[in-house]
Amino acid sequence: MKPAPGVVLAGALVTALAACSGGGPGEAGAGDGDPGTVTLVTHDSFALSEGLLEAFEAESGYTVKTVATGDAGTLVNQLVLTKGSPLGDVVFGIDNTFASRALEADVLAPYTPGTLPDGAEQLGDGALTPVDQGDVCINADLTWFEEKGLPLPVSLEDLAKPEYKDLLVVTNPATSSPGLAFLLTTIGGYGTDGFEAYWQSLVDNGVKVVDSWEDAYYVDFSAVEGGSRPLVLSYATSPAFTVTEDGSETTTGALLDTCFRQVEYAGVLAGTDNEAGAQALVDFLLSAEVQADVPTSMYMYPADPSVELPEEWTKFAPLAPKPFTADPAEVAEHREEWIEQWTAVVVG
């Protein structure tokens, strides 16, 4: 069929627009050979305080362009799909639950920064460098428990006990990343052959499952907008946001024995034509300035343990001393299977 006139016209219009908006061939974009531009591909939670990226640009001479393409899962999948014609030069935001998929697809070029902090471990022979970390934990409405005179639950087992019936709301692991993290917590706690039985006991104890974190936290959780459930799946950092006005205490707390550790990585994209710029940006993400800014702008703990944390974090939102973790390769291999097993138990 001959293309409709409208299509041709739209094509022409777009080409014209593209021509006007770009300054010339050098502006054309990601993999296009302008040595002065570094394109950072990241997820929609990436942010740095104003001035930081500008300072990096001024110091290094590179121009930084940021492309955010959805959540962490979407990000990794797009990197895999665009292998060979990468969206940019460097990536930030691949977490430990999706890392294996990126490693297996070989979308990253190894690079080990000289400034790698002590205790920060790279993945995949230098392909991925840790930048920040955080815990996904059950949070409790402290006021509610105090008023009821009920002791706070401590462990995963406690959540299935009758005195905590109908109190917990969590999110769906198929659609929300904290939901998946909590599923991995239960697999860490009860093993691949025991987690289904544990979830059955949670279901019997009236656990509520909603679609997303904002639903659970803002609609069902009792401490924030007046929902009806005093236990919610959230982050270890969340209690830092419910501090009372005088700053002396917080109205919510994380149960630190129910946490899953998430680590976010950066890496140089294979096939970049600005490898030096990409490496410089990885170094920059590990610099003292950015590491100190991570808590404020990304709500995560820096990978560098020597960085000083905001006061309300050390006081009210510490990292879990012994979080559950998962082997990225295991997660990559079984993610779908585990979610299907979970669905069979919880949804029926």
Binding site: G11, V14, T15, L17, A18, S21, G22, P25, A28, G29, A30, G31, D32, T39, K65, V67, T69, G70, N77, Q78, L81, T82, S85, L87, G88
Partner: peptide, 28 residues
């Protein structure tokens, strides 16, 4: 559509314009 954009529009119509990251794709 979104994922399709990413695998096709690196060189639309053979033009050296990487539309995927240009910001123009949004209005389109």
């Amino acid at each position: 559509v979104g994922f399709g954009f990413f695998i096709t529009l690196d060189q639309p119509l053979g033009l050296p314009v990487d539309l995927r990251t240009s910001g123009l794709l949004v209005p389109i």
